[in-house]
């Protein structure tokens, strides 16, 4: 077929040079019925459709209503992220899906970080922990367990520094998130 003169007002997405979409990170807050299998349903939707889960946290938050709140940090191109939102929303036990990355929001996670070292290393670990607001919750003569709460990036940075000193292991909760301001979900 011969190409047509395209009417400017009738321009399609596809006549524009292909828009390169870079992957971005997004945090969704999902309100679900706390029924058996709901977590498997959500995690299964991600694995079945090949989406990323960077972290997922879940806990019953409104006991009388049997509602749980799930915070999912995921990444992908905008098209993929929008599709994830639609796919979450169509699950039967899902009440609401909110894109917290689209609004001012606070994201925190907690990590327990075990570090081994003696002498100067041990002192350095303690100094850095103080600088990051991490608190020692266990100590031996050659180790510490620090508790740190913060944005995932801060936790990440702290863990990287500890790696240089003598990281043994880490346990992280994944992000919990909430929008700023007086409004609820």
């Amino acid at each position: 077929m011969t190409p047509r003169n395209r009417n400017e007002t009738m321009k399609s997405h596809y006549t524009d040079p292909t828009e390169i979409q870079l992957p971005e990170r997004r945090t969704y807050c999902v309100l679900v019925d706390n029924e058996p299998g709901v977590l498997a349903r959500i995690a299964g939707m991600f694995s079945g459709r090949g989406y990323n889960i960077e972290s997922l946290t879940v806990s019953e938050t409104e006991h009388e209503k049997h509602l749980s709140r799930i915070t999912i940090v995921t990444s992908g191109t905008k098209a993929v992220l929008d599709q994830i939102e639609a796919q979450l929303d169509r699950l039967v036990p899902v009440h609401r899906v909110v894109n917290l990355s689209a609004k001012p929001a606070i994201e925190r996670e907690l990590a327990l970080v075990k570090v081994r070292g003696t002498g100067e290393h041990r002192m350095e670990a303690l100094r850095l922990a103080t600088a990051f607001g991490a608190r020692p919750v266990d100590a031996t003569l050659e180790s510490f367990v620090f508790e740190i709460t913060g944005a995932s990036e801060d936790v990440e940075r702290f863990i990287n520094l500890m790696t240089a000193i003598g990281l043994v292991e880490v346990s992280r909760t994944g992000a919990a998130a909430i929008a700023r301001g007086s409004e609820g979900l």
Binding site: M10, S12, Y14
Partner: peptide, 9 residues
């Protein structure tokens, strides 16, 4: 990428 290139959908 070649699907109905000139249309509004």
């Amino acid at each position: 990428d070649a699907f109905s290139p000139g249309s509004r959908k």
